[in-house]
């Protein structure tokens, strides 16, 4: 067994290296617009459980590029990648489920995905979640929670969230009282950050 251990380690390293090389080739093909050439490589990696490949392949199936459009397969792949922590998959799946264009609308699942992304301080997700909470898209409207997520998105550099906060403080929205000083503070942060 002791003799086999180095060989097993080498095989494992070689396996990782070849997987990485296949992924790189697939991404280069995507970059060149060769979606049909990238799809088989991504399929091979996705079946091996690689979240980044599941994400890209999910997009190909969602948009019907290089493969026949298959929303069901796209949703499965994006869900798998999102569960494995792939930010892009979780965000795009949440967007698709929220609006219900290419996939059947599922605001509850969209909200769940956005909440997971918000814990990782991903500002675009914090912004979308705040909008859902403000409009009450997946349950009752919750202006206080929406305000908190707008604030977090603004702190993480999301320009539209800063603009929404300025508007809310000026017009006493989201349960706030009118506060021109706070609106001015956010206006100043907008100027300093040169968004």
């Amino acid at each position: 067994m002791r003799r086999l251990l180095p060989l097993l380690l080498l095989a494992l390293l070689a396996g990782c290296g070849s997987e990485q090389a296949t992924h790189t080739t697939a991404l280069k093909r995507l970059l060149a617009g060769d979606y049909a050439g990238a799809a088989p490589l991504l399929t091979q990696l996705a079946e091996a459980g690689q979240p980044a490949a599941q994400f890209r392949l999910g997009i190909l199936y969602l948009e019907g590029k290089g493969v026949a459009a298959d929303p069901q397969r796209a949703a499965t792949l994006l869900n798998q990648a999102a569960e494995a922590g792939e930010v892009g998959a979780a965000y795009l799946l949440a967007q698709a489920l929220r609006t219900g264009g290419r996939l059947p609308a599922d605001p509850q699942r969209a909200r769940q995905l956005l909440e997971q992304l918000a814990t990782r301080h991903y500002a675009p997700a914090e912004w979308e979640l705040a909008k859902m909470l403000e409009k009450g898209e997946a349950g009752a409207a919750d202006p206080a929670a929406a305000l908190e997520h707008y604030r977090q998105a603004a702190q993480h550099g999301y320009r539209d969230a800063v603009l929404r906060l300025i508007q809310a403080y000026r017009n006493a929205e989201l349960g706030l009282v009118q506060d021109t000083a706070e609106a001015q503070h956010w206006q100043e942060s907008l100027r300093q950050r040169a968004f």
């Binding site: 892009g88 965000y91 990782r120 550099g157 950050r193 040169a194």
Partner: peptide, 12 residues
Amino acid sequence: QMPPEQWYLGAP
């Protein structure tokens, strides 16, 4: 250094 306007799909 200022970040770009465009947002990207990736965890900070």
